[in-house]
C-alpha cells in the first residue's frame, strides 16, 4: 500500500468520522444523536481495522469485533430507552 493511498484512506475515513461526530455533538433531537452515534461507532470499527493493518497487530481485530458488538448493544439500549423503557 503506497503512502499516498494511505493518506487518501485516512482523510476519507477521518472526514466521515469527523462529520458524524460533529452531528453527535451538535445534535438536533435525541434520536438524531443516536443515529449519529450508530454511524460513528461503525466508522470507528473500520478505522480500528485500518490501524490494526498498519501496525500489523491482529489483536486489534478482536478489539474491533468486540467494539462492534458492544456498540450494537449500546445503540439498542439507547433506542429502547428513548422508546419509553423496556416494556
Amino acid at each position: 500500500m503506497s503512502s499516498t493511498f494511505l493518506i487518501i484512506l485516512f482523510v476519507l475515513i477521518g472526514g466521515g468520522l469527523f462529520l458524524s461526530f460533529l452531528r453527535l455533538i451538535l445534535g438536533g433531537k435525541a434520536t438524531d444523536r443516536a443515529v449519529a452515534l450508530d454511524t460513528t461507532t461503525l466508522i470507528t470499527t473500520g478505522f480500528l481495522v485500518l490501524v490494526a493493518f498498519l501496525q500489523g497487530r491482529s489483536m486489534l481485530l478482536d478489539v474491533a469485533l468486540v467494539y462492534s458488538v458492544l456498540s450494537f448493544l449500546g445503540v439498542l439500549a439507547i433506542a429502547r430507552y428513548l422508546d419509553g423503557g423496556l416494556r
Partner: peptide, 10 residues
Amino acid sequence: VLFASGLGVF
C-alpha cells in the same frame, strides 16, 4: 462510502 455516510448523517 464511509465518508458519504458521515456526510449524509451530517
